[in-house]
Amino acid sequence: MKDERTLVEGCRNKDRIAQRTLYERFAGRMFAVCQRYTRSRFEAEDVLQEAFIKVFSQIHTFRYDCPLEAWIKRVVINTAISYLRKEKAYLEQADIDNHTDAVAENETALSGIQYQQLLSLVRELPPGCQSVFNLYAIEGYQHNEIAEMLGISEGTSKSQYARAKQLLQAKMLESF
């Protein structure tokens, strides 16, 4: 913790060594997050770059009220969503009011499946589904919260997720 504080203080003082250390400490895990929200490695690199620029410029707003990694991850996710919105690459679907839970009858366990394969599956999801899936299944947000975050209705969030789930399970059964 003390080390983390030293690192944060160094970054606040624009100490390049501290910035580099912080980047190297979290870049790997954050790059994995970026990969999940984007459709290509190139986009993920762009998001990672923008996110860390924001981290360094806004590090003074970090109040130690949560783990540093969680704070950085929030920045990364927000940057990713913002990036996708700018790229107009998500939410291709209109609201689907008649949400159904009748999906994913065939649960597929993920053990033994390689990370890269799973990542490919997520990336193959339609853009809107991809974001909702990441936020709901991986990050653990509720649909009403995701709706607020993405500026969509809660019903849309649910239907997007249902669709994502259906697609993923179908692909898993098909692929594995």
Binding site: E107, A109, L110
Partner: peptide
């Protein structure tokens, strides 16, 4: 388990940029 499995699969994953 669907969400849990996916969460586990992606949690703590790291990829060197």
């Amino acid at each position: 388990n669907f969400e849990e499995n996916w969460r586990r699969a992606f949690d703590d994953t790291s990829e060197t940029p």
